[in-house]
Amino acid sequence: MSRAVLLLAAALFVVLLAAVPAALLLDLPYLLFLFQQLAILATAAVGLNLVLGYAGLPAFGHAAFVGIGSYTVGILATELPGTLFTSAWVQLPLAAALAGLVAALIGAVSLRTRGVAFLMITLAFGQMLYFAAVALERYGGDDGMILVAPSRLGEQNLSRGVLSYTISVAVLAVALYVSFRLMRSPFGTVLRGAAANERRMQAVGVAVHRYRIGAFAASGALCGIAGVLLANHTAFISPATLAWTRSVELAVMVLLGGAGTLFGPLFGAAAFVLLEEVLSGVTEHWRIVFGPLLLLVVLAAPGGIAGLLGRQSND
């Protein structure tokens, strides 16, 4: 990994941490709100990167896994308020397991196809879950629902505030560490090898399919965790979280930052969130600038931000 990449990643974390005293001293709660959104989206992007970047599979429906995490929090808060099930210690693992399981199932079916067909079938499953969320009439249907009880953490909870913010940043750091370890492991080596040359990997005697399903599960679980944090962050859960455009946005973050690199998703999420913030401050029609900018990034810098900062080794 090039030095510039490491420096930028370290700088981003310093900024994320320094935001706490800055927001408190200067009385800028919005700063924490914005940066927490950044950290949560970056966590989901780190998850997506496992499939999209390392395994090289064009998955197109990951917003659904974020949605599963969010709806887990929302449904538990509505159905079992004041019980053990509104504790973050229960919700986080439960959401991760649920999203991971659904992701593994979807992966197992989708991986029977290749290329564009794979892209489309993951999209189809994403849409199915989207409409499933719309069908949850009891939980607001199309309109969504307000989160009545944020995830509890001891005496406090995960709604807005410094604790919630710190946890989101810590989760991002853990997600990055997991991604780092996974990709250094034999598991990651198989995934990357299969992305480079699937036939050769199979000739070596590796059951590539199983590893890819594993990558889907891990990726879905990380997205589910991000979904729990997101539901607490916005205190609102709706099918819009699962919309296909959200899946594209997540993919945009990964590619913008540099797919298949460790810190790429972090850079991409930061660039996406900050650009949106700055441009939308200038004009309400910011998308007219942002859209062509995306196209320009693809055309001029296919390796994303991490690619611009220097060629790296395999991670």
């Binding site: 064009p58 797919a259 007219i288 859209g291 062509p292 196209l295 693809v298 055309l299």
Partner: peptide, 29 residues
Amino acid sequence: AIRGLYDRPHLEQVLGTFGLILFFNEGAR
């Protein structure tokens, strides 16, 4: 725009043409 996207991975095409959607939608608005 499209000319530059030939022979690129499908996901990059998705990203680039998604940018075009944003552009056209906002332009139409």
